[in-house]
Amino acid sequence: MTTNTQGNSSRTSGLLPVSFLLMVLLPLLLMPLGAIYVFAVRGGLSGFLATLRQPDAQFALRFSLLIAFSTSLLNGVLGTFTAYVLAKHRFQGREALSVIVNLPVAIPTVVVGTSLLLLWGPIGLLGQFLDPVGIQPMFAPFGVLLAHLFVTFPYMLGAVKPVLDELEVTYEEAAYTIGANRWQAFRFVILPALRGGLFSGSLLTFAHSLGEFGATVMVSGNLRLRTQTAPLYIFAQFEAGNIATANSVAAILATLSFVLFFVLLRFTERRSQRLT
């Protein structure tokens, strides 16, 4: 009885902590997000659309989407492969490797940008040999892609590896005894089991790539109509005092992120429901 009443009372008096939490979160999270939309539509819908119709803005959004898509695709393959090797094979240095591949989460993105410049830049460790033959990976779309691949690498891995770890060895062995070769076992047995992980990993990668700033700003050179991603465009417009232009693109980015996030949320909810 005592526990029951205690339970009830704590539930009713929850109003206080909840309102306190809202008071904290409102200026911290909710109001800033709202501000984007408020500013974006200040010039009316026509103004909003006009700013988006500028070639620079168009390019930045398209470029960002293209990079995010390519990053998801490449890291989808690379991350799955890495996860497969790390989960199924036992070799020397496996532990060290699994730490290293997760490292990008912990490194500041600006540092990632710097390190890429120091490797591939015109005077970089490898770049100095490429520069004379006219190959310049940095300050080019390819450099941006490299930076994004680096920064988002762990997300795919993190989504796929737990699924692989849980898959019993006998699952694959069953396929072998039935007659499937390595590729067929992977294609028909392993890969379908990874579908969920692949989907959520790709969405996470996509979302992160879309918003990436620190590393991109270092390696891209922020060249408009060439390497300028949407976040860089927003930053550049803000610097130049074009608040409305910056906000329009920001609103688009924010909306995209929301949509991605909700899809992901719904998906994981459905999966956890199915599992229980």
Partner: peptide, 21 residues
């Protein structure tokens, strides 16, 4: 020979039925 070429039918204790099929 590798397992694929032996033509054995193997039944595991944990079933190992492919879950997506």
């Amino acid at each position: 020979l590798p397992p694929q070429a032996r033509g054995t039918g193997f039944v595991f204790q944990n079933y190992s039925i492919f879950r997506h099929m």
